[in-house]
């Protein structure tokens, strides 16, 4: 690990000033991804600004009937918060599907959004990678790409975003609160992460020196009609090959509102409102769910080893929509698929 200087921030303003004024400075909170990447020489910050003692650890009710989650709330505290368990069980389930208990205890809400891809080539500082060294190339396209993107990829990059929590936040329509040298702003969740395009080195739309301060959830809906279905190479503690966050609101017998977000398939949580709209007014059925899945996966393309993900995702979407519509969400401690 490269050495670096260290400062501990006591206010949000001090932290932002310290990072904004130094192009090689980075915020650090849980550190579960940043410290790992520093050991691999992938991240080489000259200065770390420790934000763990800032007052961003509360989950507050909002005037709109939702919740505002402080950026430093640990993943485990969020998943087991009684309001999250009761009103946003999809989010709790997705968090508990990710990482290990130790990592969830250390990792923060803001940090979960900012974790970087687990593409093998990104992690190997000895090979080219456009995300790590812009312009150097992408060996993943013709290499070992079982875990890589099938949607929204570019010639520059076929990496995926690894988060489970973010897939649920996308489905729930969360908002990200950030503060930076130019003040505070909010970013809708779908605009927070970005597709790789010609600049895969940028995972998200934050400017240098901007800090995630909170994630806001709208008022709860969907009740028990949700699921987080995660498919992976082992039963626990592995990144998703494909995951689906699904939530359904029934209007009598037919679907009123549906939400579907995919993880493990793109550079960001994958959501297509047109696919969700196809379900409106339809009876829950294989044909309706398959039609939505096909629209969601329109344009999907494999790169060899990950071709299987297209059909896997299609089937996972259908299964997840049945689970959600029936109000029988996937249990994360039991791997029996309902």
């Amino acid at each position: 690990m490269m050495n670096f200087s260290y400062t501990r921030a006591t206010t949000v303003g001090d932290a932002i000033e310290a990072v904004a004024g130094d192009p090689h400075a980075r915020f650090i909170a849980g550190g579960t991804n940043l410290v790992d990447l520093m050991k691999y020489d992938v991240e080489r910050p000259g200065r770390l600004v420790d934000i763990t003692r800032l007052p961003l650890k509360d989950i507050e009710d909002t005037a709109e009937g939702g919740l505002k989650i402080g950026a430093l709330v640990p993943n485990s505290d969020l998943a087991y918060d009684t309001r999250i368990e009761r009103d946003y069980p999809l989010l709790a389930s997705a968090i508990l599907a990710g990482a290990s208990a130790q990592l969830r205890n250390a990792a923060t809400t803001g940090g979960n959004l900012l974790q970087r891809t687990r593409c093998y080539y990104f992690y190997d500082a000895g090979v080219p990678c456009n995300k790590r060294e812009p312009g150097s190339g992408c060996p993943a396209k013709t290499g070992v790409n079982r875990i890589h993107a099938i949607l929204g990829a570019s010639d520059s990059c076929i990496a995926t975003h690894p988060s489970d929590m973010c897939v649920a936040l996308a489905a729930l329509g969360a908002t990200v609160h950030v503060e930076g040298p130019d003040g505070a702003r909010t970013i809708s969740f779908e605009d927070f992460h970005r597709l790789p395009g010609d600049s895969p080195e940028k995972d998200n739309t934050l400017a240098h020196g901007e800090m995630v301060t909170a994630v806001e959830l709208p008022a709860p809906r969907f009740g028990k009609k949700h699921t987080y279905l995660k498919l992976r190479d082992r039963l626990s503690y592995a990144f998703a090959l494909v995951s689906v966050a699904a939530a359904v609101e029934l209007d009598g017998d037919v679907v009123g509102e549906a939400r579907i977000a995919l993880g493990g398939v793109a550079h960001k949580p994958w959501r297509v409102p047109e696919a969700e709209a196809l379900l409106k007014g339809k009876l829950p059925s294989s044909s309706a769910f398959e039609e939505a899945a096909d629209r969601l996966l329109k344009g999907a393309a494999g790169h060899g080893e990950n071709d299987f993900k297209i059909e896997l995702a299609r089937r996972a979407v259908v299964r997840a929509l049945f689970q959600a519509a029936a109000g029988t969400p996937q249990v994360q401690s039991s791997k029996i698929v309902n």
Partner: peptide, 27 residues
């Protein structure tokens, strides 16, 4: 593993289990 993947380094910090290999001591 020294990468937070194996758990052999697990300790309790303020009573919570974490991977000590991914914790900077200074923090």
């Amino acid at each position: 593993c020294d990468q937070g993947q194996c758990g052999a380094c697990t300790v309790l910090i303020d009573g919570r289990r974490v991977n000590s290999c991914l914790q900077l001591a200074v923090m």
